[in-house]
């Protein structure tokens, strides 16, 4: 009788430890989260504050009284942000699928086929990942100007099509597909293209989704190459447009904040919807 009660007491105490421990953990996690969220909150609050309210001050006052869209209106008036977002969408709908196709084809060859020189080709493609952007900046700009594609949509699109990261992920994905699948299709009389498009590609759809999601994030946030290759502001992607807004004298801190918030919203929505795929995909890429 007494041993039962002490056992129960002990169990209850262990439960208490657990609850307190979890509570402490939640507090720590929340404090860290605050550090990651605070700059965004400050940005959003600066964007929403009415003109009559100070942006800065001790102690900080983050609540807009009342929230106002004036700064957003001013940002969209100062620079054609909608045009920039449209440009980013043009870049995204061309670069993301085309680059995914390149990665699919290459990943299939590297991951599922056997041929002479496979490793050399693969190392060449992978090597591009370890080349810092600034090293290739000048010569690639000269190549683009030789090709006559600077200052146009093509100049941004074409050099962005090769994604070593995407090729790597697709290679891992295709290598993971059982060879029996291909052999069965071949016995059924499928040719190599049919095997690829009807059997193998459907089998790697999750990895393809990851490549396309990351492709979209990269395109939406691309900055350095468009900055170099474009002279004409009308073709700027959104991130470059925001930097342009930050650089021109006519913009004030409020409209800059509003423009930045507007530029973040689409990517945050994508991230909210696809966060599981994004994070699991990233982890999978590391393991592979």
């Amino acid at each position: 009788m007494s041993t039962v009660t002490t056992q129960r007491l002990r169990a209850r105490r262990r439960n208490w430890y657990r609850i307190v421990g979890d509570g402490v953990l939640y507090v720590v996690l929340s404090l860290i989260a605050l550090g990651f969220i605070a700059p965004f909150v400050i940005l959003a609050s600066s964007a929403l504050k009415p003109l009559s309210q100070d942006l800065f001050g001790f102690p900080p006052d983050l609540i807009p009284r009342p929230p106002s869209m004036d700064s957003f209106r001013e940002a969209f008036r100062a620079v054609p942000l909608l045009k920039y977002m449209g440009n980013s969408i043009i870049y995204a709908v061309t670069i993301v699928p085309l680059s995914a196709l390149v990665c699919l084809l290459a990943g299939y060859a590297f991951g599922a086929l056997r041929f002479r020189g496979r490793n050399i080709f693969f190392i060449m493609v992978l090597g591009t990942m370890f080349l810092p952007a600034e090293v290739m900046l000048i010569p690639r700009y000269l190549v683009a100007s030789d090709l006559g594609i600077t200052n146009g949509y093509l100049g941004v699109i074409l050099p962005s099509l090769l994604s070593a990261f995407g090729c790597l992920i697709m290679r891992q994905a295709f290598a993971g597909v059982p060879t029996e699948l291909r052999e069965a299709a071949r016995i059924d009389g499928a040719n190599e293209w049919q095997i690829f498009s009807r059997v193998m590609v459907p089998a790697v759809r999750p990895s393809l989704a990851i490549v396309m999601i990351f492709g979209f994030v990269n395109v939406w946030n691309s900055f350095l190459w468009p900055l170099v290759v474009l002279n004409d502001e009308s073709k700027y992607p959104i991130a470059l447009g925001i930097a342009y807004l930050a650089g021109i004298g006519s913009s004030d801190e409020r409209s800059l904040a509003a423009g930045s918030v507007a530029s973040i919203i689409p990517i945050v929505i994508v991230f909210l919807i696809l966060q599981r795929q994004i994070m699991d995909g990233m982890k999978g890429a590391v393991k592979g």
Binding site: L29, F36, A38, P39, L43, N221, E253, L272, Q275, I278
Partner: peptide, 28 residues
């Protein structure tokens, strides 16, 4: 929490840098 810690990774460096301008402000 995972979502919040990862959020800066998917936003553009331009927007992140702009946001930090307000954090670093004299009266920020």
């Amino acid at each position: 929490f995972r979502f919040m810690y990862y959020l800066p990774v998917v936003t553009s460096m331009v927007a992140v840098a702009v946001a930090w301008r307000y954090v670093f402000h004299d009266l920020g």
